[in-house]
Structure formats: C-alpha cells, structure tokens
Design a protein around this nucleic acid. Structure first.
Length: 870
RNA sequence: GCCGGGGUGGCGGAACUGGUAGACGCAAGGGACUUAAAAUCCCUCGUUCCCAACGGGACGUGUCGGUUCGAUUCCGACCCCCGGCACCA
C-alpha cells in the first residue's frame, strides 16, 4: 500500500470536520483540560511555517491529552480589532469589517490543512458586536469599581501614523509600526488602575508554573521598590517638595535637589533672576523627542531654579535644580541628590560644582570618594546615626521621619496605569456618555453594545481625535441619567482590552446574558496550558491577570490566575538576503545607543537587480514583510502535512529559535514513509486478538523488540507531557529502526521469524504513539487495522513496566575516573558482585597491575570506579 | 550598566538526581540493487596518535581555576551570543 498523503490527509480532515471530532463537550464525565494558544490577529499575508511552530506542538499535546482521557478544550479565534487591521484597511482602501472575515477564513483554512484539532464551533472574533459588547461590559465593571478613570495625560503621538500609541507600542522612543520618533501631546484619556493591583500581580507570580525568565520580566515591569517619601520645605515660601528615595539613610548627604522639568512647582519656586533660563530649559525638554531623553549615555544637563530647600535632618540649605534626568512619571518627579552615593547625582554635582559629602563608608572610616559608592555600608557624617549599618539606619530614620511628620515609609512601583484610550476607529467604543449636567455617565448595561458605526472614512482625523468624532449620529445622544442632550465618548479601547478576557469567551462563546456562564467558568477555567510569543511577556499577560483578579474581587470567578502553565515558543528564522549600507547612506539608528545598522534587507524584487557577490545573507525572523516566508502549502505539496508536522517538532525544542532549512525535512519525511511502510505491511496480517495470543515464552529477539516498544511508550508519553516533542520523535525513530531490524528477512537462518501477535501489538501501539504527530497517517492506519473511529478518541497505550525493564546492563568500569572497560552483566547483580567482576576483568588487571588499590566505588546498576595510586 | 536565557561534531540537536559525551536526524563519503536515475537497503562519520590488522592511547562540551573517586552537569572569575529593561531616584 503506497503512502499517499495527498489522498489521506484531505480525507481525514473532511471526516474530522463532518463528525466534529474535536468538539469539547460542556458536560462530560472526563476531567477537563483547557489548552490555548494566544489568539492571532489574522493578517492578510496568511500563515507560514513559522506560525505552525506554535500551533502544531500544542495540537500534538491536545491529541495526547484527549487520548489520555481528558475532555480537551482547544479553541481558536481572532484578535481582530486594533491598529494592524486598521492600517491594513487604510492601505487597501477597504473597511476592516469586510477584510477581517476574509483573512480569518484564510487562517482557518491553513490551520485545518495543518490538521489542527480546534473546536471550530467556539470560534470568536473580537470585532464582532456580540463579543465587544462584553469588552464594553468589562469597561463598565472596572468603571463601577473605581478602576477606570479619565485624566489628561500626554499621549505618545506618532506624527506619521497620526495617532496615539500606547506605552508598549513605543519601542525606544519610536513608533513600533513605522519607526518614526514619537512626540508628546496632552489629551484627555481613559486609564485602568492596574497600579492598584501591583502588589497582588507581583506576589501571585510565585505560584505560577511559568518560566523564571518570564516571571522576572513581569517583576521588573512592576518594579516594586521600598523606600520613603520625604518632604523638603522650600525656603522663604509656602511650598514643600516631596521626594521618593530608596536610601533615606543617605539624607545627611543630600546636598541638592532636582525636579523634573514638568514638575508642577517649577514655575512657583523659580526666582525672577533664573526664570529665563528655567523656562528655556523646560521648553527644550518638552520639545525633545523621547528617544533623545532616554539616551543614558549623554551628559547631564540642568538649570538652577534660584530656590533652595531645607534638609530636614540637619537644617542645611540645599539648592533646587531642574534636570531632565529626573522623570515626572516615576516616584514624585523630584529627588534629593546624594552625589556621594549615586552615580547620576555624582556626575551632576561634578559638572555644576555642587558639594559631595560622604555619608556611607565601606569600613566606617572617612575617605575621599573618587566615584559614587552606591553600595551599603556604615554611616558616617550623619550626626547621631554614625556607625549604623545601612539597614539599621533606614529603619531608624524612617521611624523618625514618620514621628516628625516629615516623611513616611513608601513603596513605589515602576508600573503605570494602563492607558486604554485609542483615538482610532477600529476598536470597541468606550461605553461612556458625557453629559453637561451629569458628567461622565456609563452607558447602562442593557444598552450595550455601543455599536461601532459603519463609516466611509475611518482614516485618522489627524487632529488627534478619533474618526468617530466626526460622525454626528454617533456622537449626539441622550444622557442615560437625565435624558438631556449629551455626547458619546469617541475614543475606542486598545486591542489589549479584547485580549484580556478572550480566554473566558471560548468557554461560552454564544452567551448573550453574560461574558460566560458561571457553571461553565467553574468547569473549564483556568487555562491549564497556554502558549504564545515572548513579546507578550508583559502587556497581555499582566492585563489578563489584572482583569481576572478584578473578576474575582467582584465575585464572578473563583480563581485569581487565568493561566496555570505558560510556555513561549521560539521563532522560526529564515535565511534572508540583504546588503551593506551604501557609503554615506543613512542606514538609520537602532535604539538610544546610536548603534548603526550594518545590514539592510533586500526585498525579493530588489534581489534580482542587485549584484550577487554583494548580497549578505543573514538569519531573520520569518515574516511576509521581509519576503522570506515558506508556506505550509508549499511543503505539504511536496511531502505532505504529517511530514511537516514531524519536522516542525523534531528540529528543535519548542522554546528555541530555529533556522529554517528545507534540507532537514527529508529526514522527517523518510521517517514517516518508513513507519507507513512497516505499519501498512503489519496491518495486512493484523491479529486483533493479539493480547491473548502473545506467546508465554519468547526468543531474545522478540523480547528485545517488545522491550523497545514498551520503553518507547513510556518515553513518548513522558516527553509529550513535558512539551519535549523533539526527543519524543527521536524515540519513535529509534522504535522504527528497531522494528525494521526485527523484521528483516533472516537469510542466514538465524533468529526466529517475526511473531504475528507481537507484530500486531507493535502495529497497534505504534499507530497510537504516532497519532499526536502524524494524525492523518495514524487515522488511516487505525481504520486499516479495522478499528472504529479516530485515534483522537482512542486510548493511549499503557506500557508494561516488567516488559520495559532491562535484564542486562552494561557495567562501566573506570580506573581513577577514566573509562577502562565495559562488561555486560545481569541487571540485578549486587554491588559486591559488580566489584568482583570489575576487578577480574583482564583489561582492568592490566590497567592497575603496577598500582596500589586505594578504594573501589560502586554505583548500583551503572559503574565501578577503581581508585589506585602509583 | 542591570535582569533573564544560552555557548556540545561540518549542521540541527541528545545526555535521568554529578557516573559510558555526541542519542535521533541532516549533510558528506563508500557499497548493494538498477540499463540509468530516483527511491530503498548496508557500512563509515568529534580531533589526533600508534598498529599490517584486530585493537589501543591521548585530547575533547566557550576560557581559566576550584570541589569531587569522577564534572557538559556543582562553585568562582572571565569572554562571547540572544532576548528584555534602561538616568527608576
């Protein structure tokens, strides 16, 4: 029977679809398992083999779980709102409303082609009114709980896209889409108060089964730091400036202060003499692009305000400066400067001739500071506190500050509130009405959804307002409270709002009474296994965790963390042509460190025209925009999807980046063909009653191949559970090789003929072991064996520990830790016997003949190490 | 600079809890089959040295050092690569 993937693959895909094989039942006696991949934005370029590096392994995992008796929920949907869809729509001149279903259909087609086991009855689309109605409901929930507020804040304004960007959409001061430098613009905006949950988001990380790297990234992002806020009185004024410091123990060394240029008190405290210089500096700081300000390399600048404050611990006068190295967005926007023990303050003091005082010493003595010493130590020059360690000093001074009412213990966070407003068309409208009498009024729940109007012009207004602002029918409405004329909020919600709860919707996708029914939530949630790109390490995962905690607090769910296990897939790199920049060509800069790009991508149409000897090839992330994609269709055409699936999982561990090369796929394809050939032949003489026909006594060869089978069953299950698909496939290849050898015709007449019951056992088990990896082939073989249904609902084979057990081991004999002999011995040989056997070996006798025996170490079942001296 | 991950043959990668380094595969070379090619099957395949051969020795997991009977694995210092953060007070 010839292996013909082009026939069997479509055949089984059709059957799975017709029979709804992958439907997850809400009521089942089986334990539930919720497996989820981050839902994608369906782009016009479709899926390539790189995307499958995430979807295929998870699919294999789900099939394994199903075969192990779990009721598996494995859904797929579309993250359809947001800037990429809107930008694509602007480019093609079509409404995203029309574009998204076309793109989604293409994604769905490719995922089905790849044999992925999704329950398509649960497909969701975040731009569907039936979906975003609940996104709006979440907004109201947050609003009602005081977690949504409006504030005027500078937005990240991209002059090229003519739109606002979220903080995480700004990469090193540049727009993540078009790379233009980002400017600041003040706008009234909506925020979610994620900072109120900072501590819980931080503490609950500990219990999660996520990679340490991922958790560290979240911890860094939350950025908790303990310290104190201290009030400094401005001399000859009614003002005081509050600072945050992690080192209140260095207060005696605070010789000046610096405020951020945007600090609200700057205008009030600046003296007439300094006003001109200060205003000029503030203006310059505002006009500067964020990218320049973020550059840590540049030298410190600043201006004296003319004002001075009083150091509360010793009454000394400290001049107040402004400088752009202090950020308004962190802490209080003002710092006390301790040049002796902070590198930035040190540099600033040196440059402007400000005094540097040592207040921390490595050994308790005083010495000249050649540079800032930020470490902990013993206090000096600190009055009565001299001699205290940093930790003791902190405790005492904080207590004193609190007693005097000058300061208090404070925990500060780096994380900022979540800016949700987008001045864009393609998002869920924010369900708020602005009434001249009643103020901000939430749209009543029964009036949801606030429908996104169908408009002709959804291009950015360019004024900073959403395109919705220019649609009178949308804007003008009645106040839900007083019935008077009012205006709708025209901002829409950023895409992260949709993706912060979509995993709940899969559980109950058609529910029009709630975002999901409580009984179903209790049954399915939380997500047991979640995979996705590392790029969502912070935003998406933090926001989802935040919303889940809000739901918990509001009594809607009974758990606090949405994703139990998380793994990040590596990306697929493609060998990509590029060139060196031409002489004098501005290759652009990357990041704030002025690193010059030394490689420019060549688009496919440029490649032909470019001199071949000047083309520089590099590994770059596979993406349509780079023109370096390979599609699953291309590969399936040549080798079949099952071979591609095997290759995607075999080439590297799930979390590693992989350099795509088509050469390696030969090996995977060869393996699939070999397995097919053997299994198809075995199926022809299959004995369904093999269990009762297994002979009681078996020749060595038969026992060996059965041992290999049962070891493989054990290993493959273990590896799939650990998401280690590459080694699972390697084990299957070994089994295939062993079976092949066992089945060789024995010309020399040695060894027994293959046993029919054993061959049947192997055929049945191996078909099932292959099912997660090559489901089409497995199902075809399964029916050839005369089995009903699909492998998806079959039982994963159990291994017999006594069959898998080895009866002989290779004893390794070392002399002084060096390998000197290998001896085959019965597996149950006791240590004393092992030692005797080792010492009797001729090779060992030879190796130790002119030495004195010192001692012998025996590791049970493994090795003997003989220590000798010469 | 800080945080996280990593560095193993020509290549992708494997190695349980400190115990045979290089599983499995790719590529390469040799052979069988074939009119021929493809496919398939068999053999070799870390470096180096000794041997006619059978065999055997030394070295070898980024570098240097340490712990240990024994280190890819543990500890210390350093180098390099990837990802993230970055004047965070």
């Amino acid at each position: 029977m010839h292996y013909d993937p082009k026939t069997i693959e479509p055949k089984w895909q059709r059957r799975w679809e017709d029979e709804k094989t992958f439907r997850a039942a809400d009521k089942s006696a089986k334990p539930k398992y919720y497996a989820l991949e981050m839902f994608p934005y369906p782009s016009g370029s479709g899926l390539h083999v790189g995307h499958l590096k995430n979807y295929v392994p998870m699919d294999a995992f789900c099939r394994y779980q199903s075969m192990n008796g779990y009721n598996v929920l494995h859904p797929m949907g579309w993250d359809a709102f947001g800037q990429p869809a809107e930008n694509a729509a602007i480019q093609t001149g079509r409404n995203p409303r029309d574009l998204v279903p076309v793109y989604a259909a293409n994604y769905r087609r490719t995922l089905k082609l790849a044999g992925c086991s999704y329950d398509w009855d649960r497909e969701i689309n975040s731009s569907d009114p039936g979906y975003y109605r609940w996104t709006q409901w979440f907004f109201l929930l947050l609003h009602q709980r005081g977690l949504a507020y409006r504030a005027t804040a500078p937005i990240n304004w991209c002059p090229s896209c003519k739109t606002g960007l979220a903080n995480e959409e700004v990469k090193e001061g540049r727009c993540w889409r078009c790379d233009s430098p980002v400017e600041k613009r003040p706008m009234p905006q909506w925020f979610f108060r994620i900072t109120a949950y900072a501590d819980r988001l931080l503490n609950d990380l500990d219990a999660l089964d996520w990679s340490e790297g991922m958790k560290e990234m979240q911890r860094d992002w939350i950025g908790r730091s303990e310290g104190a806020t201290v009030k400094f009185v401005i001399r000859n004024s009614k003002f005081e400036v509050e600072v945050f410091t992690t080192r209140p123990d260095t207060l005696f060394g605070a010789t000046f202060m610096v405020l951020a240029p945007e600090h609200p008190l700057v205008g009030a405290i600046t003296t007439a003499a300094q006003r001109g210089a200060v205003e000029a500096y503030v203006k310059k700081a505002q006009g500067e692009a964020e990218i320049d300000r973020l550059n840590a390399e540049r030298t410190k600048t600043g201006v004296f305000t003319g004002a001075s404050a009083v150091n509360p611990v010793d009454g000394r006068e400290v001049p107040v400066w402004i400088a752009d190295y202090v950020m308004m967005g962190y802490g209080t926007g003002a710092i006390m400067c301790v040049p002796g023990h902070d590198a930035r303050d040190f540099e600033f003091a040196r440059k402007f001739g400000l005094p540097i005082v040592q207040v921390v010493s490595r050994d308790g003595s005083r010495y000249e500071l050649a540079e800032a010493e930020p470490g902990e130590g013993i206090a000096v020059n600190s009055g009565q506190y001299d001699g205290l360690t940093t930790a003791e000093f902190k405790k005492k001074i904080t207590a004193w500050l609190e007693a005097e009412g000058i300061g208090k213990r404070t925990v500060n966070y780096r994380i900022r509130d979540w800016l949700i407003s987008r001045q864009r068309y393609w998002g869920a409208p924010i369900p708020i009405v602005h009434c001249p009498k009643c103020g901000e009024v939430p749209v009543p729940e029964h009036d949801l959804p606030v429908l996104l109007p169908d408009v002709r012009n959804y291009q950015p207004s360019g004024t900073g307002e959403s395109p919705l602002a220019s649609i009178p029918e949308f804007v003008h409405t009645q106040c839900p409270d007083c019935g008077g004329p009012a205006k709708r909020e025209t901002d829409t919600m950023g895409g992260y709002a949709c993706s912060s709860w979509y995993f709940f919707r899969f559980i109950d996708p058609a529910n029009d009474k709630a975002f999901a029914g409580r009984d179903k939530l209790d049954h399915w949630m939380p997500v047991d296994f979640y995979t996705g790109g590392i790029e969502h390490a912070r935003s998406h995962l933090l926001y989802s965790r935040f919303w889940t905690k809000v739901l918990f607090d509001a009594g809607y769910v009974g758990f606090q963390e949405p994703f139990k296990i998380l793994k990040n897939q590596g990306s697929l790199l493609a060998y990509t042509p590029g060139r060196k920049p031409f002489a004098g060509e501005d290759a652009g800069t990357e990041g704030g460190d002025e690193k010059t790009l030394d490689w420019i991508l060549l688009k496919p149409h440029e490649l032909g025209k470019f001199p071949q000897n000047q083309v520089v090839w590099r590994w770059a992330r596979m993406s349509k925009s780079k023109g370096n994609v390979v599609t699953p269709e291309q590969i399936a055409e040549k080798y079949g999807i099952d071979s591609l699936r095997v290759y995607e999982m075999f080439m590297a561990p799930f979390e590693d980046d992989v350099q795509w090369s088509e050469e390696g796929i030969h090996g995977s394809h060869r393996f699939v063909c070999r397995a097919w050939r053997w299994l198809a032949a075995a199926a022809a003489q299959f004995d369904p009653e093999w269990r009762t026909h297994l002979p009681a006594e078996m020749p060595t060869e038969v026992r060996a191949v059965r041992r290999k089978l049962h070891q493989t069953i054990r290993k493959v299950g273990h590896d799939i559970k650990g998401f280690q698909f590459n080694t699972a496939i390697a084990a299957l290849m070994e089994l295939c090789n062993a079976v092949h050898e066992y089945n060789q015709p024995r010309e020399d007449g040695q060894g027994p003929a293959p046993d029919r019951a054993v061959v049947s056992e192997i055929a049945e088990c191996m078909t099932l072991l292959l099912a997660p990896f090559t489901p089409h082939m497995a199902d075809e073989l399964w029916s050839t064996l005369g089995k009903p249904g699909t492998t998806y609902h079959a039982q994963w084979p159990a291994h017999d520990e006594s069959v898998a057990a080895v009866n002989e081991i290779t004893l390794v004999v070392q002399v002084n830790g060096k390998l000197r002999d290998r001896i085959t011995v019965p597996a149950n040989t006791v240590n004393k016997e092992l030692e005797r056997i080792a010492l009797e070996s001729n090779k060992i006798k030879e190796a130790i003949k002119s030495s004195t025996l010192v001692k012998v170490l025996v590791v049970k079942g493994k090795l003997v190490n003989i220590v000798v001296s010469r």
